[in-house]
């Protein structure tokens, strides 16, 4: 496990936990789903998942990266992205 990358995720999570008390409510969802993307990347890069799961994590990461900013001007699109990620995980 790459310790530096691991601590980056921890720093992101704790900063988000603090920030979300003062930020727009939708940012809570944004930070959580972006954490999913970061964790997926970490799992893949550290070979904590097999090849098939790595492909799945890639797919999830791509969907999140492409759509996460829609929370700022297209809430419906953002919710759709969250639902899409749920569907991918539940179908796997």
């Amino acid at each position: 496990m790459n310790n530096k990358e691991f601590y980056k995720v921890l720093a992101y999570l704790v900063s988000s936990a603090r920030g979300c008390l003062d930020e727009p409510p939708v940012y809570g969802s944004l930070r959580m789903i972006d954490s999913v993307r970061m964790l997926a990347k970490l799992f893949k890069e550290n070979r904590l998942v097999d090849e098939q799961d790595a492909l799945l994590l890639d797919k999830i990461g791509y969907i999140i990266e492409e759509n996460k900013f829609s929370c700022m001007d297209n809430e419906e699109g953002f919710i759709q992205m969250l639902d899409d990620v749920v569907d991918i995980l539940v179908e796997d």
Partner: peptide, 10 residues
């Protein structure tokens, strides 16, 4: 830069 990015979710 890396340290600041780590503590800057935005």
């Amino acid at each position: 830069l890396e340290k600041i990015k780590s503590f800057s979710p935005g």
